[in-house]
Design a binder for these strands. Structure first.
Lengths: 348, 348
DNA sequence: ATTAGCACTCAACAGGGGCGAGTGCTAATA
DNA sequence: TATTAGCACTCGCCCCTGTTGAGTGCTAAT
């Protein structure tokens, strides 16, 4: 239905959205008529604006103010009016140079990506590391802490390190632990955690009374170590940049925003929603959705290595965000990070 | 000099500080005269107040407002008037129950401590993990990533896991790496990183042309792995609680505060300053000190295990903070955490 | 030494008028 | 018939004003 807009209405809507993006203030008919050479008088523009308002694409904060785009208006703009140009070689190279991944461990790479995304966009950068369950097993080690407590260290294909403390009432010697980890490392190498879990279940079922006590132990331990879900890791960078945006200039809005960023839960849910999709995705935090992120938009893209471990990165900013600038940055960064992940994998 | 205050002045100063702590508003002579049974008229109180103002312990925001304590005033209050009562057994048990450390890895313990500190105090909780250089070596592992790149995993005595990517142009086999880590684990076990570094330097100097190629490699690798300084890990919890405090209710103050919390640098510097001291320390962010943390006070205490790895935890709140409530919490928590760290160490 | 009394100060609040940006409607125009 | 000039109207914003009330400093009396 919204596609039934004629060209003039589209042009005017586009002009309003873009003016609003730069000014953050209601846009009046006079400004549109003057700045953009439509050769239309303010009065004509007003007529079109009234139509757009009726359609729910614009609204006016009060009678004598200009119009601002509604969530729906932004949605329409993004869906049908926004043209995202690709970066040229020069810009790509600049972006590549912004990131310094040399000899960085995975956590630092994630953090660096967030920082750079935030710095380039001047909004808040988000990076969610690949979920534990989607990572590919590379190596596991057990280290004895105090009596009955082991430290498990897990390394994924891409060099992501996880550790966990597990209870183990039996007293295993250092040799036992070495044997166990060797056994697991040879058995589980190259499987995703998801597949690891399936395999472990099978093995445990098959060998209820295992001939080899130590192998039995190994299965038990790895079950304890790899079964539970691991909290998602989310890196938030440049949260304070959002506080500079006029839409969040009141103390209440600020507090709300900082709370939302701090708990991370809402953000993770939002990022999860885009995990199945490909390419850049845009979420508009309209009035309907989460209260915590009212007035925010999210531009995300997934990154992944060839083995399928998927993470998400993106930028969160005000709805009134410079989409045409940020979208290509997010897009290309996701590609870059995917390549970095693959670099970690041993070529054979 | 400030100690030359007579008893009445002290009482009045104390009353003002405590009123101000609960109300966050300038305290007038009338209120003091009425609420606290000094049997003094407002006029007499005013005379004393004028003296205290002259001494720099109080100030008035404007002529017709009450008085508020200056930084110096708070300092005096803390140094000579504040009585910190110990927690009774009941309260200690409650505090113990607030923390659930079972089967938590170190990072999670740190985070949990921050969360609970923040929750109990209703201010912002800070935890700085023991510095890398002060930790005691327990185990090191090397995992091959791609061609020429190794992942080093280091575990400290208390189960703190660090990892790092290092360049290694030589091509070492898995067996080589195992040999190397075994060698290092036996050589370096129980030494602090500080001592490890000294030992490595010595060894390298001694065996410039080492008879054993692999041992030489081991020394080189561990040098690369353990030489650099590692970024301090700081956990900040409940930053948004600070934004609810009236002293940070303006947008500018909020932004400033969030920025300071986000960069962490200022906080780390501040926490570092207290690392050498014992027991609870209080820093008042007076006008003179860091601009970023104006209006903030910091209550910290160090925690450590028997081997000497030192970390710091604490609470940051407005200068107008409830010291008598928060100080014992910070104190006892530090003791608790120290005990948890020791629990990790193998008893032999 | 303490206190009652009094004049004074000043932030906070509410009301009112002018300004200006912007709108909707209507009638004239190409 | 689509466009536009003109005009009355709306309403947020700003500035000025007067009032209120909490609190002070000073002085003289106790």
């Amino acid at each position: 239905m919204a596609d039934s807009l004629n060209e003039r209405s589209q042009n005017i809507l586009e002009a309003i959205v873009e003016d609003y993006i730069t000014s953050a203030e209601p846009v009046g008919s006079r400004a549109i008529s003057r700045k953009h050479s439509f050769n239309l008088s303010p009065a004509s523009v007003r007529n079109v604006m009234a139509d757009l308002e009726e359609m729910g694409l614009l609204c006016s904060p009060h009678t004598s103010a200009g119009r601002i785009p509604t969530g729906k208006g932004f949605q329409y703009y993004i869906d049908t009016l926004l043209e995202v140009r690709d970066l040229n070689q020069n810009e790509k190279q600049n972006l590549r140079n912004s990131y310094r991944f040399q000899n960085m461990k995975m956590e630092d790479v994630m953090q660096e990506v967030g920082r750079v995304l935030s710095g380039l966009s001047q909004y808040t950068g988000l990076v969610m590391a690949p979920k534990f369950i989607s990572t590919v097993f590379r190596q596991i080690e057990f280290i004895r802490l105090s009596q009955g407590r082991l430290l498990m260290i897990y390394v994924s294909e891409t060099g992501l390190v996880q550790n966990k403390v597990i209870e183990a009432n039996s007293s295993l010697t250092a040799q036992d632990l070495e044997y166990i980890s060797n056994y697991l490392n040879s058995e589980l190498n190259g499987l995703s955690i998801h597949d690891v879990r399936i395999k472990l279940k099978e093995e445990l079922r098959k060998d209820r009374i295992h001939y080899d006590q130590l192998k039995q132990q190994a299965l038990n331990l790895s079950c304890a170590a790899l079964q539970d879900e691991v909290e998602d890791q989310l890196y938030v960078s440049g949260a304070s940049l959002m506080l500079g945006q006029p839409e969040f200039s009141t103390p209440e809005k600020m507090k709300q925003l900082v709370q939302a960023f701090e708990s991370k839960k809402v953000l993770i849910e939002l990022l999860d929603r885009g995990q199945s999709a490909q390419g850049v995705q845009i979420f508009i935090g309209s009035e309907s959705s989460d209260i915590d992120l009212q007035g925010c938009s999210l531009i995300t893209s997934n990154f992944s290595n060839q083995k399928g471990a998927i993470g998400t990165l993106g930028v969160i900013g005000p709805v009134r965000m410079n989409y045409s600038q940020v979208v290509p940055i997010v897009d290309f960064t996701a590609q870059l990070v995917s390549r970095v992940l693959d670099r970690e994998i041993e070529q054979n």
